[in-house]
Nucleic acid binder design. Structure first.
Lengths: 354, 354
DNA sequence: TGCCGGTCCGAAAGCGTTTTCGGTTGACTC
DNA sequence: GAGTCAACCGAAAACGCTTTCGGACCGGCA
């Protein structure tokens, strides 16, 4: 109990050599079925657990991947981190791999971490997220020959591995949906195009308009910062137009919530005079009044898939460029997107304008 | 560049033995200052990075701690995970330690992980969170002799190490604050007492009332589930009382938001007829109308401190029982707690009752 | 009988560190 | 000038596993 049982103990007890025991446990085929069974039983009985460090040292593999947390530029509490990491950790645990967390506090620090990993190799691959339109990390990691996959694309993600949500498609669907409700004046409140997803979402909106046979009206393409205030200000500008939109696609839920306030402040009601769709699927959106219609993306499964992709790459079973996948976001119908001119039909409607 | 430089390379280049190089780098005192300098320079120049696995195997230390994610019982997107883990990871990285993530998908799975760790010892300590009033994990981990510290206390956290927010004090302050605003009929919407923090917060509310010389009125101690709906239902019950409260302490922000809806539905305005304080400091609360007054707790520093505590315990520099710390939550004044009978004075006030 | 090809297992050489234990210097004492 | 004591450094044994290489053994075939 004190001394952790090693290969040696099992070997002695069964009158076998350590190497035989090792190969039996690792299912080598030059060990007889009978011996394997004996070894496995003994291992089980003795509560054997291989020493991770010895194993990794000897095999030269680390069976560990690292997740690089987004650098906290401010007070950002990323709500997706928990789920994403849970997805990764569970998948990895199933394969006997470990998930290590890296939390750089600056880009320089991040670079230093990369370099260290490139040399020490105690982490055999990385998952990065929050990619920028121009993201130097792709180049750096490739130069350092560190296997990686990113959650989100970038201009620089040429033949790198990535998994992304089809932001463009999501906004096409969002726009189409609004059009199907009878809206013709559909605007967009987007984010700064340094964020790759922001650009993609804006593109989706444009394509959605086109698909629906609508035209983009002047001043309908707003761009703002990804915050409540940003959404609020942008919406105010839209409302000040000669022909304000009757529906708005917002780059994120937080921005949408800011827009809701602006709509209210102008004396309208979100979902009645002006429909609104957000993006992120934040739980909190369902607590608003009216509850925010939005698009949500799968997070646990994304984490799981990211890990899976990285493993195959690390093991050399596939090329990074063969690992580029798009997930689909799905529409969450709540209360802020409604047929043109019909008021607020469903759910808990507004009591604050009674 | 291909072959990672090891101790051997440095030793040969300097005509020293590997052991000398090793001790020089580890700052042993039986190595002359001059030699140390030479070795360090050479190591720097050659880009030496010690092999983690070899080092850990030889030293018998793992320099790794694990964070056990709360079991996802539903769709819960814990907003605090990101910050907490970032805090831990940064602190650990500063000391050359690693943070590993464990995401059990059931209590049985969690137990299996514990047992494995107890045997393999490749993780030298654990941090757990989301503790229950009766939490068997304390006992289990102690029996398995796995060093750990918990984020949050429990009935079972006798002489274990923990770091917690002073929930009781927070609710004393919250209650006192409301009393100072002139409220005398202060109710509480709490959570199920299986959650240790819920019980503590209820206790704090009671003590706060007492400190303020107020009495607990019949039916003022609500208990509900930690959700929007729970808060909503509980508030409805409070409103149906003969003498409804003029202020309510809520166990969490989400519950408070549910309560806000009930208040509105009854034709009142949160922060005017009925004041309200939540707990958690969720960003989203500031986006509501009126913005939710709440209590927030430090998260990054908690994570950092948790890691620090665990390290000293693992290294045997302190006893678990000497590592019990209370952090303080702080009041975030926003719009839902106001002087009795004064309407809504500050900030973006309500435009939806115009 | 002798040889061949499988099947199964043991020996031993790593993997790259850490750490204990002596041993060699040189300076200092008496 | 012999003995003492630091101050430094090298040799070598771990640490617990993986993996290559042979070797023993057995049946079958010519």
């Amino acid at each position: 109990m004190e001394e952790p049982t090693g290969l040696k103990v099992i070997a002695e007890r069964l009158n076998l050599s350590e190497s035989t025991v090792s190969r039996a446990l690792n299912d080598y085929r030059d060990i007889s079925a009978r011996t394997k069974a004996r070894v496995r039983d003994a291992a089980e009985e003795l509560g054997y657990e291989p020493n991770t460090h010895a194993r990794r040292l000897a095999s030269g593999k680390s069976d560990t991947i690292g997740y690089v947390m987004p650098i906290q530029d401010g007070q950002l509490t990323e709500t997706f981190l928990g789920e994403l990491m849970a997805g990764m950790a569970k998948m990895l645990a199933g394969r006997g791999w470990d998930l290590m967390v890296l939390a750089p506090h600056s880009p320089e620090d991040e670079l230093a971490m990369f370099k260290k990993i490139a040399r020490a190799r105690h982490v055999s691959g990385l998952i990065i997220s929050r990619t920028y339109s121009d993201d130097p990390r792709f180049r750096i990691l490739q130069d350092l020959e560190i296997p990686f996959v990113s959650h989100g694309r970038s201009n620089d993600s040429g033949n790198a591995a990535w998994l992304d949500v089809d932001n463009e498609l999501a906004f096409v669907e969002m726009t189409t949906y609004l059009a199907s409700l009878g809206h013709e004046r559909i605007a967009h409140i987007g984010g700064a195009p340094v964020y790759n997803f922001a650009r993609q979402r804006a593109d989706g909106w444009k394509r959605g308009l086109k698909d629906a046979g609508l035209k983009e009206m002047a001043g309908y393409a707003e761009s703002t910062e990804l915050s409540f205030e940003g959404g609020n200000a942008a919406m105010k500008r839209l409302l000040a137009l000669e022909k304000p939109p009757t529906a708005v696609c917002c780059v994120s839920d937080v921005v949408a919530i800011g827009a809701m306030r602006a709509i209210r402040d102008a004396g309208y009601l979100p979902g009645r005079e002006i429909s609104l769709v957000g993006y992120d699927g934040l739980e909190i959106g369902s607590l608003l009044d009216p509850p925010l219609t939005t698009m949500s993306q799968p997070l646990q499964s994304a984490g799981s898939r990211l890990a899976e992709m990285l493993i195959t790459i690390v093991e050399g079973k596939s090329m990074p460029s063969d690992n580029q996948e798009l997930f689909r976001a799905s529409l969450v119908r709540r209360g802020t997107a409604n047929p043109l001119g019909e008021g607020v039909p469903e759910g808990r409607s507004t009591t604050d304008r009674q």
